[in-house]
């Protein structure tokens, strides 16, 4: 992989010139925007891992005497740094718990979609014929319907629970992994290494699991990074509509949805989670684009 990057730089006419300083090379490899984005993602992950210890209040704890108290910079008290909501619940603590919930849902959703899609893609590449036709028809169907509509229909028919909701997120975007892994597995099958292992008598699961998958993993990881923000947006959109994560549990979209009722009197309830959604999706997209350019220039 490193040689690919070096070749690209060498082929780029602007790269020819006097040797540049270490700082310039470092900035080129790790742009400041990517570093900031990575910093934000690490902070979010740390919050998600340690929320019980750092949140000042439980996310359901009410303080009815301090309802709709503003954030500290807008005349609030230091007991509630980001203010409180209509039931006197601490916005900061709820925000921290929401970050964990939204990240967990998006993480498992993306993981399920990637596993399912890769499995179906490899299945299609292995069997070809009618199996491939079925998988391709399913891909066409999934890609031709807006996923939000399918998700809403499933929620209407089955009702809502957290497990079902996470599984539903796992159906978002599986067709992209299926397409990519099918294409790559077909290409890999025609290469020498897969044929060599097959000649040695390795069973199919071993060829795909131990040899083909590691070779296509970087492309799949890049796709997962690019799909992750979409899953966050989908989850927060559904929760905003009141059809995703249900109270008393809380997620970022859920907080925006409830904060909307108090838009005129207490905009901070809605602004704090909105800012976290935007910054998190922005950071992951930036890192995803950067990873794609570094690991896999073919995926444009």
């Amino acid at each position: 992989m490193a040689t690919v990057t070096d070749d690209r730089i060498a082929a780029d006419p602007t790269a020819v010139g006097p040797p540049r300083s270490r700082v310039a090379r470092f900035v080129e490899a790790w742009p400041p925007s990517v570093l900031l984005a990575l910093g934000w993602i690490v902070a979010m992950l740390l919050i998600a891992a340690s929320v019980e210890w750092i949140a000042g209040y439980a996310y359901t704890a009410m303080d009815l005497r301090a309802r709709l108290s503003p954030p500290i910079l807008f005349g609030g008290t230091e007991r509630h740094l980001l203010g409180t909501d209509e039931l006197g619940r601490d916005v900061l603590s709820r925000l921290l718990y929401s970050i964990r919930m939204s990240l967990l849902i998006a993480f498992f959703g993306t993981l399920i979609a990637a596993t399912l899609g890769t499995f179906l893609g490899i299945l299609a590449a292995h069997f070809r014929g009618w199996v491939e036709d079925i998988v391709l028809t399913m891909i066409d169907f999934q890609a031709s319907m807006p996923f939000l509509i399918i998700a809403l229909a499933v929620l209407a028919f089955f009702g809502n629970s957290l497990i079902l909701f996470i599984c539903l997120m796992g159906f978002h975007g599986w067709e992209r992994y299926a397409r990519i892994s099918r294409g790559l597995a077909i290409a890999a099958n025609e290469q020498g290494y897969a044929g060599a292992v097959r000649q040695l008598g390795a069973p199919a699961w071993r060829i795909y699991g131990r040899h083909v998958l590691p070779n296509i993993a970087s492309t799949l990881i890049v796709s997962m990074t690019l799909a992750f923000p979409e899953t966050i947006l989908l989850e927060s959109g559904l929760s905003f509509l009141g059809l995703g994560v249900q109270p008393p549990l809380t997620s970022l979209g859920n907080m925006v949805g409830y904060g909307r009722e108090y838009l005129t009197r207490a905009p901070w309830i809605m602004l704090a989670p909105s800012a976290v959604i935007v910054l998190t999706t922005l950071s992951i997209s930036l890192v995803g684009d950067w990873l794609r350019d570094r690991l896999d220039p073919t995926l444009k």
Partner: peptide, 9 residues
């Protein structure tokens, strides 16, 4: 990256 409900609100 800005969801439509955030932009709208």
């Amino acid at each position: 990256t800005v969801p439509s409900f955030v932009l709208g609100l």
